[in-house]
Amino acid sequence: MNARVLLLLLWPFAASAQGFAGLGTETDGFATPQSPAIFDFPTDHGPHADYRIEWWYLTANLQAADGAPYGLQWTLFRTALAPEQGAGWSSPQLWMGHAAVTTPDMHYVTERLARGGIGQAGVTADPFEAWIDDWQLTGPDFDRLTMTASGPDFAYDMNLTATGPLIFHGNNGYSVKSAEGQASYYYSQPSYTIEGTLTLPDGDVDVTGTAWLDREWSSQPLSDDQTGWDWFSLSLDTGKLMGFRLRQTDGTVYTSATWITPDGQTTAYPDGAFNADPLSTATVDGRTIPTRWRVTLPDRNVDVTVAAINDQAWMQTSVPYWEGPITVTGTHTGVGYLEMTGYE
């Protein structure tokens, strides 16, 4: 079987960009996010089988004792072929894991796929455990987690501790993704401290840093005319900023952002308040990808330049995309993560 086709099913964003719009944007009996969002924790840390797509998406900016910067990604995607849990091999729930470690010169990536009904991958809310194969993100609760992943040429073992509250994007966690009203449930834990060991071909590296975990689920996250997105999570000296822009076929963009104060207060910004414009591009896997951006949020006097630590942070997975650590300079300084999809 063509694994790429499978991945297109797994990941409606890619599906949309690939012209599998019908699969990505119709709800087909799946539940759709409703406003106002009402969450029930810890249950909502677990999977929502009646929604088409869902993820546990963790990125971390790390530093070794010698000051060398590292980026780390641990992602578990869930997609449902039908809005039901099911059991055994015929369960329509499918799982995909992506793990990566980025250094200024190298980018290590690996991918796992699993069926949902046989115990090979899944998420439980209480106690919290997310896993695919030997990869795990687990802890007594969402604030204290251990995280492991391994690939043919790298592995890591990390401990995470939350230092702030959960953050809800959009309208209290109801995040609108297009002018037509496509939306997802979206919350984050942007304030983990993280420490642990990276196992790289040159040896083990002890690292510390900060991590950001996104939780999002939906059934129709993109509208037909959206081709991809550019997503930024920035940890700045005076707060944190999550912003994304969804690129549309007519060349316009739809943006959304959340400003997070150090004590966890959030402000959600509607379309147009947040801007991200490419400054320069790099050739990555034969494609032209913007790796330096000007990011502005005038309402907060944010006007910064975002630059990739490693231009070549290409996720050479079944559906490829760009995901890597960035540095921030300008009116604010800091670090963060950038994700770009739909660059064909």
Binding site: M1, N2, V5, L8, A15, L81, A82, S90, P92
Partner: peptide, 12 residues
């Protein structure tokens, strides 16, 4: 398999 519907049928 380049047919998404068929893929669904294969798995479920």
């Amino acid at each position: 398999l380049s047919d998404g519907e068929l893929t669904v049928d294969v798995l479920t």
